[in-house]
Design a protein around this nucleic acid. Structure first.
Lengths: 99, 99
DNA sequence: CTTAAATATGCAAATATAGGAATATATTGG
DNA sequence: CCAATATATTCCTATATTTGCATATTTAAG
C-alpha cells in the first residue's frame, strides 16, 4: 500500500487507536474519563452496569493500546486518559454523534 | 448501561462511525479524500495497490455507514466524503498518529 | 448485439473480537 | 496467617471482520 501523506506505520497506529475506542462501552469509558477524571474498575463497572470482568477486559484493551494509564492505590486501581490529545477526538466524535 | 452525557444511541452511532474508519485501508481512503477530492474505485485500487474487489468492499462499508457518498459518471463511480465534519476527525486522528 | 472496462456482489476460509463464568492474584485490616 | 475486597486472567463460545477469487452487473463504444 502507498499513501498520500501518512506512512503505513502511521496508518496502522492511527487505526489501532481508533479501533481501540470504537466500541460503545469503551467510548462510554472515554466519555466518563474525558475531563481528566480518574475512576476505579468498580466505579466504572457500576456506572456502566456491566460485569466486572468485562469492565476489566475493556480497560485492559484501552491500556494495552496506550490510551489509558492506571495507578494503583491500595486495593483500587484508578484509570485515566493518558494523552490529552485524545480528549479532542472523543469530543469531536461526541459532536459528530449528535448530528 | 448508563452514561455521562451521551445517550446509548449516541454511543452506538459514534462507535459505528469510528469503527467504519478504524481500518488502515479505510483510513488511507479517508486520507486520500480528505480535502473533498472525488476518486474512482480504480484510482483508489491502484493507489492503494490492493485488489479491486477489496477496494470496492471497503468503499461499500464506508458508504453503507454514511461516511462516503458516490456519484456515477459513465463507467466510473466517484466516491467522496459525505460529511465535512469528518474532515476534522480524520485530521485529528492523523495528528494523533504522528505523536 | 457484442465486447470491453468499471464496479459490485456472493461465497468461503482465516482471523479477530466480545462477553461472561470461574478462578487467580493482590492488598489491606485484624 | 486469615478473611474480605478489588482487580486481573483464563477459558470458552458466539459473532463479526477481512480478504480475494469467481462471477454478476452496468455502461459505453462499435
Amino acid at each position: 500500500m502507498q499513501f498520500s501523506n501518512l506512512t503505513p506505520e502511521q496508518l496502522e497506529k492511527a487505526s489501532a487507536i481508533l479501533k481501540a475506542i470504537s466500541h460503545p462501552v469503551r467510548l462510554a469509558i472515554m466519555n466518563f474519563l474525558e475531563d481528566g477524571k480518574m475512576l476505579t474498575v468498580t466505579q466504572l463497572h457500576e456506572m456502566l452496569k456491566i460485569e466486572q470482568s468485562t469492565t476489566s477486559h475493556h480497560l485492559g484493551i484501552l491500556k494495552d493500546k496506550g490510551i489509558l494509564s492506571s495507578k494503583r492505590e491500595g486495593k483500587n486501581t484508578y484509570y485515566f486518559i493518558r494523552d490529552k490529545n485524545l480528549f479532542t477526538i472523543v469530543d469531536c466524535v461526541g459532536k459528530c454523534a449528535c448530528t
